[in-house]
Write a protein that binds this DNA or RNA. Structure first.
Lengths: 368, 368
DNA sequence: CTGAAAGCGCTTACAG
DNA sequence: CTGAAAGCGCTTACAG
C-alpha cells in the first residue's frame, strides 16, 4: 500500500524494459504470449493501476468526456446523467459535469471550462432554443430531431403521435395540450405529434404555462377546471412536471381522473408511477440515446487522431431518432361511459397495445 | 487556432526559460513584476491554456474530485450535483460523476473507479445504511449528523423539530409520519425531530412505505384516507416524494388539503412549489453543505502533500450541521375551524415566522 | 530575479 | 520479440 506501483516498478521487478511492460499491458505491441502473461501477473501482484495523467500526457487524450446540461436542476438530469455515465464508463471514459444553470451564456462557458479541463469531447443537452457552435472539439448534441446538428434524440414527434392516438382510442375528441415554452424544439415536436394525431379527428388547444406565469405569477392556477367544464376531456402535458401540476389542480377542483378527464405526461419521471392516479406517459430510451451519443463522440475523437479503424461511418437518420415507449397507467382512461376500446384494460394489468404502429408499448409496473 | 500553445512556445517567443514562464503563470516563484506582466500578456495573446495533464503528472494532483451518490436517479441528485459542481468549480476543481445505482457494492466500485481515474478526493452521499470505509484517499461524506464519520449534513433532526412545531402551531395533535426505510439515518433523524416536537403534545404514528410495498406492491395505496377519517389531521412525509404521493392519494379520496388535513414534505423538490396545493417543506442549504464538503476535502488533500498553510483546522460540530429552512406553502394550514395561530397567513404571501426558533423561515415563491 | 535540468508515468516510433 | 530513447507539458528544487 505504499505509493502506487508504476510501469517502471514492474519492469525492474522483472528485469525487462518499460516499453515491453507498456506493450504487454496495452496488448497492442507484440509481446510474447508468455512474457505478456508474466508481466500482467506481476502487475496485478503489485496492484498496478495505470496513471491516467501519464497516459493523457503522452497520448493527448484524457479519456474524459464532458456532460453539459442546460439546467442540471431539471428533473430529467438524473436519467441523463445515469445513462451517459454508464455508457461512457463502459467505453472507458469518465464523465465530468458542467452546469449552465439554465443560462445560455453560461452554457458556452461551461463547455469551455470542460474543454480546458481536458475533456476529449462534450455531450450537450442544450437549453431550449440554443444552438451549439463550433467549440473546436467533438460534440454530441442531444435535443430533438428537428434541431440542426442534432446527434441523437428520442423521437419526440412520434411520441406525441402515440400519445394522441392513445387518447383518440380512448374516445377523447377534445384535448388541451400543456407546454411551457414555444422555443423548445423538444416540446414543439411533441406537440406537433399530438396535433397530427388529432388532425381531422378531434380538436386540440394549446396552453403555454410560461405565458400564463408571466402574467399571473409562478405557480398560478392554469384554469384547467374551467376547460374541463367546457368539454375538454383530456390534458396532454409535454412533460410529467406539467402533468403533475394538471393532475393536482384538477383533483383539487374536484374533477376525477380518469373518471372525468384523462391526463398524460412525458418522460416517466421517478414519481410518475406512484402518484394517485399513476401517470400515463411516454418514456425515452435513455440508455440507447446515451450509447449512441457516446459512440458518436468517441468515433469523432478517434477520427481526429487517425486512430479510427475506418472512415467515420455515416449514421443513418433513423438511427438518430430513438422510439419512445408508451407507458399506460391509471391517469388515462376511456371517456365517461365509453367502453374501453380494443384490448385496452383500464388499469395496470399486463402489456397493452395502444396504437397501430408496430412499436412496442408496454404497461409497466414499477419495481422499486 | 493551430495546436494549443504551451509554456515552451511562450518561453521561445519571449526568449526566456520555461521555468520562468511557469513561475510567472502560477504567481508563486519570484518573477519581476514587469517580466511577469509581459509573460502573461504573451500567454493571453497566444491563447495559452495550461495542460492539466502536464500539471497533474508533475504535481500528482488531478484537480478533479469525484462525486458518488447512492442513486444518481434520486430526484435530489440535481440539487447535490449543482451545488457540488459549483463549489468545486469555484475552488478550481472539476467533478467526475460516479453512479452506484442504489447498489451498496457498486458504491464501492464507483468510488474506486473514480480514484483510479485520478480523482484527488471523493464526495459521497452514501446509500441508506452504508458506511464508507477507508478508501486510501480523502473523502467527504454527506449523510446525516448521526452517521459516524459524517463530514457535513443538513440538520435533519432540527428540520423535523421545526416541521413538528409548525404543525403543532396550526393546532394539529395527531400526525402520521410517512417514511420509506427504517435504515436511513436521514429519515430517522427527521422522524426523530418530528416526534420530539410532538412528545407530550400530540400523538404520532409511523408509516413505512417500504414495508407496505413489500406486501402490497409498488405504488400501492397507503391507506391515508382511512387515517384521515380516524382523526389524523396531518401527514408529515420525510420526503417531498412521499408527500406528493400522500397529497394525490388524499385528493383522489376526496379529502381536501389543507381544508381537511395538512401535508408536509422535506427537500423542496423542483415541483413542490407548483403543485396544487403547493407543498410546505423543509429545504437543505445545499450551497453551504457543498461548500463545506469541498473545503474539507481540499483541506485534506493539501494536508496530504504538506502544502497546507496550517495544520488542518478542527471543524466544530455545529459547523457540520447546517440548519434547514422551513418553506410554508398551501398544503399546511390550521386544523378545521381553528383560527390561524400567530402571524401565520394561510397562503403564499410574504415571509411568515412559524416557530419560536430564531431561525429564518420564509414563504417563498418560485421564480422560474 | 532568472535559467538549466531532472522528473512525473506513460506511449511510440525506431533499432536491434 | 524486446529495448533504448525521446517526448508529451508541466513543476520544482537548485544554481547562478
Amino acid at each position: 500500500m505504499a505509493s502506487r506501483a508504476n510501469l517502471s516498478d514492474i519492469a525492474k521487478a522483472l528485469g525487462v524494459s518499460v516499453a515491453t511492460v507498456s506493450n504487454a499491458m496495452s496488448g497492442k505491441g507484440r509481446v510474447s504470449q508468455e512474457l505478456g502473461r508474466t508481466i500482467r501477473e506481476k502487475a496485478k501482484e503489485l496492484g498496478y493501476v495505470p496513471s491516467l495523467a501519464g497516459r493523457a500526457l503522452s497520448t493527448g487524450r484524457s479519456h474524459v468526456l464532458g456532460l453539459v446540461l442546460a439546467d442540471i436542476a431539471h428533473p430529467l438530469f438524473p436519467q441523463f446523467a445515469q445513462a451517459i455515465e454508464h455508457a461512457a464508463s463502459e467505453a472507458g471514459y469518465g464523465v465530468l459535469i458542467g452546469d449552465s444553470r439554465g443560462d445560455v451564456e453560461a452554457q458556452t462557458r461551461a463547455i469551455n471550462r470542460l474543454i480546458e479541463r481536458g475533456a476529449d469531447g462534450i455531450v450537450v443537452v442544450p437549453r431550449h432554443g440554443t444552438r451549439i457552435g463550433d467549440i473546436g472539439r467533438p460534440v454530441a448534441v442531444i435535443d430533438s430531431a428537428s434541431t440542426p446538428g442534432n446527434t441523437v434524440a428520442a423521437d419526440h414527434w412520434n411520441g406525441g403521435l402515440e400519445i394522441g392516438r392513445h387518447l383518440l382510442e380512448l374516445g377523447h375528441r377534445s384535448v388541451a395540450i400543456i407546454g411551457l415554452h414555444s422555443d423548445s424544439n423538444v416540446q414543439n415536436d411533441r406537440i406537433g405529434g399530438i396535433r397530427e394525431a388529432f388532425a381531422g379527428r378531434g380538436e386540440t388547444r394549446l396552453i403555454w404555462i410560461g405565458e400564463m406565469e408571466r402574467s399571473h405569477g409562478s405557480g398560478c392556477p392554469l384554469g384547467l377546471v374551467r376547460l374541463a367544464e367546457e368539454g375538454v376531456t383530456a390534458f396532454a402535458a409535454v412533460s410529467d412536471l406539467h402533468a403533475l401540476r394538471a393532475i393536482t389542480e384538477l383533483q383539487q377542483g374536484g374533477i376525477s381522473i380518469p373518471g372525468d378527464v384523462s391526463v398524460t405526461g412525458f418522460d416517466d419521471l421517478i414519481w410518475a408511477g406512484v402518484i394517485a392516479p399513476s401517470l400515463t406517459t411516454m418514456r425515452m430510451d435513455m440508455e440507447r440515446i446515451a450509447e449512441i451519443a457516446i459512440a458518436d463522440l468517441i468515433s469523432q475523437i478517434e477520427q481526429e487522431d487517425g486512430r479510427a479503424t475506418s472512415p467515420r461511418p455515416p449514421v443513418s437518420p433513423d438511427q438518430r431518432s430513438i422510439p419512445m415507449e408508451l407507458i399506460i397507467r391509471q391517469s388515462s382512461g376511456p371517456v365517461l361511459g365509453l367502453p374501453a376500446a380494443g384490448a385496452m384494460t383500464p388499469v395496470l394489468a399486463g402489456p397493452a397495445s395502444s396504437s397501430t404502429e408496430p412499436r412496442r408499448s408496454t404497461t409497466r409496473e414499477g419495481s422499486d
